[in-house]
Nucleic acid binder design. Sequence first.
DNA 1: CACTATATGCAAAACGTTTTGTGCCAGTCA
DNA 2: TGACTGGCACAAAACGTTTTGCATATAGTG
Lengths: 340, 340
Amino acid sequence: MATKVNIRDVAKAAGVSVTTVSHALSETHNSRVNAQTVEHIKAVAGNLGYAPNRLASGLRNQRSQILGLVSDEITTTPFAGAMIQGAQDAASEHGHLLMVVNSGLDNELERQEIRALQQHQVDGVIYARMYNQRVSVPAELEGMPAIVLDATSDNPGLSSVVPDEFGAGQSAAELLVAAGHRRIAMINNEDDIPAAHGRLDGFRAGLARHGMQLPVDSLVTSRPSTAGGREAALELLAAADRPTALFCFSDQMAMGAYQAAGHLGLKIPSDVSIVGVDNLELIADGLWPGLSTMALPHYEMGRWAVLKLLEELENPKAPRVHEKVACPLVERDSVAPPQD
Amino acid sequence: MATKVNIRDVAKAAGVSVTTVSHALSETHNSRVNAQTVEHIKAVAGNLGYAPNRLASGLRNQRSQILGLVSDEITTTPFAGAMIQGAQDAASEHGHLLMVVNSGLDNELERQEIRALQQHQVDGVIYARMYNQRVSVPAELEGMPAIVLDATSDNPGLSSVVPDEFGAGQSAAELLVAAGHRRIAMINNEDDIPAAHGRLDGFRAGLARHGMQLPVDSLVTSRPSTAGGREAALELLAAADRPTALFCFSDQMAMGAYQAAGHLGLKIPSDVSIVGVDNLELIADGLWPGLSTMALPHYEMGRWAVLKLLEELENPKAPRVHEKVACPLVERDSVAPPQD
DNA sequence: CACTATATGCAAAACGTTTTGTGCCAGTCA
DNA sequence: TGACTGGCACAAAACGTTTTGCATATAGTG
């Protein structure tokens, strides 16, 4: 890697002016220069290994080609990777780079990080959360292009994208009903968040479609952890006419349900069918038998967010949209017809 | 957020020249301007909400204050978050930002991404892998400051940081021996990678310290997945004089061992003790009982990498170092004295 | 042949900083 | 008083681009 060749070097080597090099290399302006010289210049630039300095062009164009991604607790959730990857792939396809920043739950730190992003002249930012929630975005984001990822903002002027929680619940119900289950219970997250409401509502709607409903004692809520799922499942499965199928808020809670079933000597899926939500490979694939689950579309949401951001950058008047993306079923081996 | 105030605006508002503002605001140069005017300028700048344009200063200083982080499959591993967070925290503490890029296993794409990073004038890059391996870094990194993270490079000119695999194995042995176990087996990853060798060697060394050794039929290797761990454990635990403790290459494999134990009607930890490596919260905390495991120090390695990079940026002649960072034991409930 | 239109290339200004060199002024010393 | 110092502030150049407006040469038109 020779020591930094710039546009002036290329111009000199090609025997033309900087202007001409710039024009030749820019898709939009190269009509201003002879096709032959364009070829020549491109060849010279290639030989010299010229690569434009984006700091300089960013400064000149008032467009850094950098997008900021600010997220909360990236560490504690395995979803972060997929989200970042989705965003980065989309950014990269459009010649942009991603600046990632995460601040845990420290609001002051978050504001600071956002300001740092702004100093670096990011063209826009994606404000990401690690689970679907309602947020109010920090004031420093006012007036700059921003998209809310895996959350909805109290500011309707911001486009946002979340999983279709309702649809996930509905599909889970369909799946279980189609397998022949009639006594189905749900283990929900006790927290008051959109994900919990959406999945439950969807689940109910799915049952209702088939003339069924969720009896009050077939819904138990608990902490959204393995232990929480285990305790809830223990309670449900110990009942006299225990359910033949369980819909769990998350794969983690489903893992708890597996433990409860094992503890009670119940076989999955023959004695009890289980479906989760998340499609955490680590869990869903690791459980034995494999867990059928509704996949949370983190990769797609990440993509969608930057694509939308790029669109709004292109056209600031583009309509804001609040997208819900589908949660496809990933079938493994935890669902079977009921026994009796 | 008013429309971008620059240094010229501050100068005008403060009734001084741009030069003076610049000097006043720079820690190193503000001796060149009267203490009183410094105060005044800072006040004015504060009121106006002035924030320097880092594109411009980067251009002028030949120092972007941006670090690149290129990683492989960030999506499929839950470690990525901790690594990125560690790196980002350290960067942020030193006024730098992180540009994250990941290219899966596509080498061509990786080179492209690195070039994109270079166009944005990153000051240095961290070349990260998701598990300890030997790598040869892409040619485009030649001649630019770089650190290898969670891998060692065939190029000794590059500093690198990896987990102390040997130490992890050794500590696991110590733990199990101290609990009173004498028949201990290991389930190792069948892949030919430093992690597998290091943990095995360390484990053997730990046993040797206490005059024990690992019988040949007490070591079984398998795929590094839950299923792999399950199969291996099934084999080990079905033996006539089954081991009373299992050291597993990873938490995932340990999860498989749990399943095998459950299948055979063995209780953990009373019938068999288990220890893993990784400390994946999702698994180690989710298993029942909780899994005692050696934590892989991804956060610390991420931090170390950027700190070292910053050091080498400061002083290009700084000695290259190949760091091993300790894997502390995280005790939960999967280890107890053997029964008989 | 004169005149205009078009094709091609260039010089220069601008983006927002930082830093070097210089000038001015007030003291200080001889 | 004249020369010198140090403190303070400023103008200007530079970092590497992109783009506007202009200049030249060539081709096209009547």
